[in-house]
Design a protein around this nucleic acid. Structure first.
Lengths: 160, 160
DNA sequence: CCCTTCTTTTGACACTGTCAAAACTAGCGG
DNA sequence: CCGCTAGTTTTGACAGTGTCAAAAGAAGGG
């Protein structure tokens, strides 16, 4: 579900106090069409309509819109930083160990932090980030020959 | 709590079917003394006792012992891969947004996956990885001038 | 329309990690 | 105890992701 603001990249940028430039509009549009994209994918996508856009500009824009709250950056282990426009709602991600596909998952609690650790060790807790790992529908049926994109499980394969 | 096996790097390596070499013993020892260390920190530590050890050897050994189940690799957003010897138990991590300090947190459920998403979108779920974000005791009181190591929150600052 | 400020371009560079081939060695068998 | 063989380490090059800095260019207010 998208609000009217989210449908118009120009309004999103202006509303966040960012100048409206072609590269920024193109990046936001690219993310709207392909969520969970990395800088390289966004660069390729933007290059189709704005061939002169530099790679550095993509990094600048992605950082800017992330700071401005228009985009969110996620960074699953073994993958570069990925961006999505779904911000302000409360969701986590499922990542496929074989192909890297990412799917959004709504959080059942709905507020931060959605979890509370048993001990905080003196930390001032502000947030819990949850990443689910598994196999996507395609890889599950295909039993692909490719090695997993995350060779070593960050949490162990069967003990978490 | 450590078992007798975990106290002896040589026994750990041999028990995992790995050859016992000086670089490997040094890496395991380094991780025992400084958990959540990255390849560069381990390299520096090992270099003190084995100055001829190459950087590549550190990567090899870290990958080997991770594959063998002696170490676990974690990769908080904005940081390089970090390693710890605590495997086989069930724990997550709290990461300080300012200084990057990492603390272990036991999981309350104790088995994998410790969480179940509301929808799996066709994924075959195997595991849930939880990363808590906040401020460590030192940074909390110091209100440090340094910018946070993770400029953009992967989950939003207050909406998760 | 101009000016100021912000944005983009350009090019270099740092960090993390991988690949490949030659030199070396742990550990087994004799 | 010695030598062999498979597994390790060294060496050097290289790839991907991302940052830094300065000059050129564009957005938007007056």
């Amino acid at each position: 579900m998208e609000t009217a603001q989210e449908l118009d990249p120009r309004a999103m940028l202006r509303g966040a106090g960012l100048r409206v430039t072609e590269p920024r509009v193109a990046v936001v549009t690219a993310l709207a069409h392909a969520p969970h994209s990395g800088a390289d994918v966004v660069f390729s996508s933007v290059s189709e309509t704005l061939p002169t856009t530099s790679r550095q500009a993509i990094y600048n824009v992605l950082n800017d819109i992330t700071q401005a709250g228009i985009a969110r950056r996620i960074e699953p282990a073994g993958q570069p930083g990925l961006y999505e426009l779904r911000v302000g709602d409360n969701h986590h991600h499922i990542v496929c160990r074989h192909c890297g596909a990412i799917s959004d998952v709504d959080c059942v609690t709905g507020h931060a932090p959605c979890l509370t650790p048993s001990t905080t060790n003196g930390f001032d807790l502000s947030e819990a980030e949850v990443t689910f790992w598994g196999l996507c529908a395609t890889c599950k049926t295909a039993t692909p020959p490719h090695p997993p994109i995350v060779p070593a499980s960050p949490q162990g394969e069967s003990r978490d």
